[in-house]
């Protein structure tokens, strides 16, 4: 039985007069993996950032786990505790060790004791395959390791949904696979994921639903087979031919 984890109904957003999101409708079931792609400036990151209120939408409804996202700080806090986020630039805290990066949220936001938080942190560091880096500072790690720490940091909050905003775009090519590998494992374990990425190999492997956005609209939506096999809109065909060429 599947239930709706995230629901967007007629979501609109403007930056000043610039219409970034136009009537976005999207329904994501628990356990579903959604991959969003599209040219830069198409609004794909903005959709993800609206889901945990890093950006505000001006019209329409966003519901996460049945809670509607409003200006009420309680609703924002409730939704953020359900939703984890992995950023393009990792955004690890450079002044803290890897372990402290992971325990900060559980200890300060959830009130776990230090030993509980550290046990949890080590558990998730093992899951992203870098338990031996716990005492290092983020600056001493490679980009791929940093991004895996960032994934572990999100997992420590035990979110119901994990959002990824171009998680491999800032990485050197040889680091990309180690991060994607961790993401595939998460997907196989049943995590609900929304991933903004241009990694089409990853998309084919894990996506239940592919979304193509352009100019603030969802232009095309479908299973990977439909999406890659027979894209309907010319814009999506063109985009796919460009990124699949090399």
């Amino acid at each position: 039985m599947s239930e709706t984890a995230i629901e967007l109904v007629d979501v609109n957003k403007w930056y000043g007069t610039f219409h970034v999101l136009k009537d976005i409708n999207l329904s994501i079931q628990t356990g579903e993996k959604v991959v969003i792609c599209g040219p830069s400036g198409s609004g794909k990151s903005t959709v993800v950032r609206c889901i945990n209120r890093l950006e505000e939408h001006q019209k329409g409804t966003i519901r996460v786990d049945g809670i509607e996202l409003t200006n009420d700080p309680n609703s924002v806090a409730a939704i953020r505790s359900d939703v984890g986020m992995v950023f393009q630039q990792f955004n690890l805290f450079p002044h803290l060790t890897v372990l402290e990066n992971l325990t900060l949220g559980p200890m300060k936001a959830r009130g776990l004791s230090k030993s509980e938080a550290e046990a949890k942190a080590m558990h998730y560091l093992k899951r992203v395959h870098i338990p031996d880096q716990a005492m290092k500072r983020p600056g001493q790690l490679s980009g791929g390791q940093q991004q895996r720490v960032a994934i572990a940091r999100s997992l420590c909050m035990e979110p119901k949904v994990l959002l990824f905003d171009e998680p491999t775009s800032a990485l050197d090519p040889e680091m990309i696979s180690e991060v994607l590998e961790v993401m595939v494992e998460l997907a196989q374990e049943g995590m609900t994921m929304v991933v903004v990425t241009h990694e089409m190999g990853f998309a084919r492997k894990v996506a239940d639903n592919m979304i193509f956005m352009d100019a603030g609209e969802i232009v095309e939506q479908g299973t990977p087979d439909e999406f890659f096999g027979s894209p309907r809109s010319p814009r999506c065909q063109q985009f796919l031919s460009q990124i699949l060429e090399h």
């Binding site: 945990n52 890093l54 806090a77 953020r80 505790s81 939703v83 984890g84 986020m85 950023f87 630039q89 955004n91 690890l92 805290f93 450079p94 002044h95 900060l104 949220g105 300060k108 936001a109 959830r110 960032a150 940091r153 999100s154 420590c156 909050m157």
Partner: peptide, 27 residues
């Protein structure tokens, strides 16, 4: 201090004062 630091702190559930105290001010 880069905006991403505040955003990361928010996504792991820290409130405004905690974000300042543990993430922004130490840097």
């Amino acid at each position: 201090i880069a905006k991403g630091q505040t955003e990361a702190a928010q996504t792991i559930g820290l409130n405004y004062l905690q974000t300042m105290r543990y993430v922004i001010l130490p840097q």
